[in-house]
Design a protein around this nucleic acid. Structure first.
Length: 614
DNA sequence: AAAAAAC
């Protein structure tokens, strides 16, 4: 009860200060002002020294060392002694109830066991012990072994508990301290490695500590996020947003998502209500920037997820526009994290342009984790694929659990192919739906929901669903059409075998896939899968045909990209030099393609990790 | 070659 008035007071104090008497009726309260109870705090109570220039932060390295008494306040976590005391209980908060924070964890912590085991059991934690991890760079902060080793703050710790994260994944163990130290990072990490949490925790924590009292400029209709997370697909952005909201629950840090295909007005409204962390796809963000509805001048954290994917998709111009040609602070004055599964020269270039004195991190995939996925390859002629699929689904049906049919994800190569296969399945009595880029966003989201819920246990998808998407409980991934790229294959099969559950991946192979034969059989061998003799023969043939073999074939510590002739063309060692600034970087060891993530089939690929770790 | 992504 007193809390309510406290909050209200706090808000009006903040408003008065922020509006400067200008009659601005914005209800947005910067995060560093939110977590304080008004009775004792006011603007003047900001951490000592008052306003620190925001730009002093990233390279300073020491900004975390100061007293951090501006969060975990009594009004917040201490509360009535019960956990989650603060926000939940208020009946009208600083926002006057207009945007009551929905509990992203569902109704109550205590009901979480209702449907079987908690999400995180079954993870083979021991498998994490011997994951190869390589870092390079100057003064790399040591990894942590537990979340408790890191001072993320009570609110965040509580959310980690709610997420049931027991121990940090390798990418988290390394990334979080690096990031908390204010360092830039280029990381080889893929879906399933826990990277969303790895970059969200430090961002949220940093924003909460945000000692910068620098106010957002007074631009009533322009949102000024402190952190930007870019990702290649709408669904991935949406998923990151969902995760980030869990991590930020009751921290006062506001997360907003913006992507195309959805009505922009709602997103604009959300933005107007204030945003600390903006998750976005590049196209929509450019739109928002051009409308001046978003300004990047306050950005302190930038995370680029699936960077190689974004470049594949032709986003480089938009990304460069966003990062270099708008009003975002330059490298060194912001903290940048670049995540990519592979390191072709385009990515190297991006890294040397976007990052400052960065640390390079490559996390190997979890030991023998692909053991959790049984991979089968079957020789199927183009014309036989449908009937073959029908057989598989029938067999699957027999295995279904809880009276529900197990979820089957079917990958095809084209959007038309997806539609026609879906139509065929449906007209043959199989409940199927489809997701691809020709469908409206509404249809895509509906399809995904319907699939996840089990209402439509068969989902036909193009590669839009291959990467990053977290669909729990997929029992079977069928590569109806194999991709041309082994990385895509790895991503696709990674949709199953999650959360420590076993998964099955079946591929239909025929002459059309010759180019994949070699890398596919290598991958399967590495994962202790049975490679059919006929596939080995295809592989042997293809290795001479010069098909699309894997570059270098190297493992950890492959080719040095600077020795790649195509790389040094037009300026020997340009990138090497660029990356070497300060002696960091993806220098030897992680080649352009021949390096870690590329050849190791997902250097950090780690299926068998629960959804929340993505 | 196809996929994805802003209106």
């Amino acid at each position: 009860m007193s809390m309510r008035t406290s909050w209200a007071d706090s808000v009006s104090a903040a408003e008065n200060a922020a509006a400067g008497g200008g009659g601005n009726r914005s209800t947005y309260v910067p995060p560093h002002l939110r977590n304080r109870s008004a009775s004792s705090d006011s603007l003047a109570a900001l951490p000592q020294g008052g306003p620190a220039p925001v730009n002093a932060a990233p390279t300073g390295g020491n900004r975390w060392a100061g007293p951090r008494n501006d969060y975990n306040r009594s009004g917040y976590s201490g509360g009535g002694g019960g956990r989650g005391g603060g926000w939940n209980n208020r009946s009208g908060g600083w926002d006057r109830g207009r945007d009551r924070e929905v509990n992203p964890f569902g109704d109550d912590d205590s009901t979480e066991q209702e449907s079987g085991e908690p999400e995180n059991t079954g993870i083979n934690f021991d498998a994490y012990e011997d994951i190869p991890v390589e870092t390079s760079g100057d003064n790399v902060p040591p990894p942590v072994n537990t979340f408790a080793d890191i001072d993320l703050g009570d609110a965040l710790n509580e959310n980690i508990r709610r997420c049931k994260y027991v121990r940090p994944t390798p990418v988290q163990r390394h990334t979080i301290p690096i990031s908390l130290a204010g360092r830039d990072l280029m990381a080889c990490a893929q879906t399933g490695s826990g990277k969303t949490a790895a970059f969200c925790f430090p961002i949220i924590s940093g924003i909460m500590r945000g000692q910068s009292a620098q106010r957002a400029p007074r631009m009533p209709r322009t949102a000024c996020p402190l952190a930007l997370i870019l990702s290649p697909t709408r669904e991935l952005s949406s998923q990151i947003h969902d995760e980030a909201k869990k991590f930020a629950y009751q921290t006062g840090v506001k997360v907003v998502v913006a992507y195309g295909g959805a009505p922009i007005n709602q997103q604009l409204r959300e933005l107007e209500r204030g945003v600390d962390i903006l998750v976005a796809t590049p196209g929509r963000l450019v739109d928002l920037l051009e409308r001046a509805r978003v300004s990047l001048q306050m950005i302190r954290y930038l995370a680029l997820d699936e960077a190689d994917r974004m470049l594949d998709m032709g986003f480089e111009p938009q990304i460069r526009k966003i990062v270099e040609q708008m009003d975002m602070p330059p490298p060194g004055l912001r903290q940048t994290m670049l995540f990519s599964a592979t390191f072709p020269k385009e990515i190297q270039r991006l890294a040397s342009d976007f990052l400052s004195k960065y640390i390079f991190l490559a996390v190997g995939r979890v030991g023998s984790s692909t053991d959790l996925i049984v991979q089968r390859v079957e020789y199927v002629h183009e014309t036989d694929k449908r009937s073959h699929l029908m057989d598989l689904i029938h067999a699957q049906k027999a295995n279904g659990s809880h009276g529900k049919q197990a979820l089957t994800l079917v990958f095809v190569e084209t959007k038309k192919g997806a539609d026609s296969l879906e139509y065929w399945l449906c007209s043959n009595g199989f409940p199927a739906t489809t997701i691809h880029g020709d469908r409206t966003q509404q249809e895509r989201e509906y399809a995904l929901r319907s699939f996840k819920s089990g209402n439509t246990p068969i989902l036909v998808a193009t590669d839009v669903a291959a990467r990053g998407l977290d669909i729990p409980h997929v029992a079977h991934v069928v590569n109806f059409d194999l991709p041309n790229d082994i990385d895509d294959y790895v991503h696709r099969i990674g949709r199953t075998g999650r959360a420590g559950k076993s998964g099955l991946a079946t591929a239909f192979f025929n002459e059309n896939n010759s180019s994949l034969a070699r890398s596919l059989s290598e991958l399967m061998q590495e994962a202790n899968q049975e490679v059919p003799a006929w596939l080995s023969r295809f592989a042997a043939k293809a290795s001479y045909g010069g098909g699309k073999n894997r570059r270098g074939g190297g493992r950890f510590g492959g080719r040095d990209f600077r020795r790649d002739s195509s790389f040094s063309r037009g300026g020997a060692d340009h990138y090497g030099g660029g990356n070497m600034s300060g002696g960091y970087g993806a220098t030897s060891g992680y080649g352009a393609g021949g390096g870690y993530g590329a050849s190791g089939y997902g250097g950090s690929y780690s299926p068998g990790v629960t959804s929340a770790w993505d």
